[in-house]
Amino acid sequence: MFERFTEKARTVVVLAQEECRQRGDQAIGTEHLLLALFRVPENLAAMVLDGFSVRRADVEADLAARWTTPPPDGAADADALAALGIDLDEVRRRVEEAFGPGALDRARTPKRRFLGGHIPFAKEAKKALELALREALALKHNYIGTEHILLGMLHGEGAAHDVLVERGVLLDVARVIVDELVRGRRAG
């Protein structure tokens, strides 16, 4: 599906993979694509985002706020399990009795699975890239650039969509800006 991607758009996909790996995430999500957009110099998507005064640091802060799920072995889980009548400490004690100290918590540490290997796209990211193609076609562009990836992200689901919409980046407005920028570029 990447045949029509411009060099910069391809770079975004590659960098998204890097962002994903650095964070130890298991699949490339729209948030990784969005973070990657900021790292490619002089791309149209970044210009559009700049027009909305959205910077990488803002996005990082928003994403960090969304990812504040408690660690798996945190006190929150113990409370939640206690509400169901399960004593996590007691479970841990019995498991350690059989398997040795730290046995349960070792298993509870999330594994960094795809280190070095191929990282799959999350459903939303795949969808966003498909929509990027659709956006390019609608604008009668015969390539898929970073600007189309951004528009694709703005369509629907995914962390990038939520973060951007909360920061006032709207699909319709962004599409008009992209159109103008591309026309301007052709004219000039």
Binding site: A76, D77, A80, L84, L88, R108
Partner: peptide, 11 residues
């Protein structure tokens, strides 16, 4: 509660 239970189950 369900999420915590699932994590415990997975472990």
């Amino acid at each position: 509660g369900v999420a915590a239970l699932r994590r415990l189950l997975e472990s």
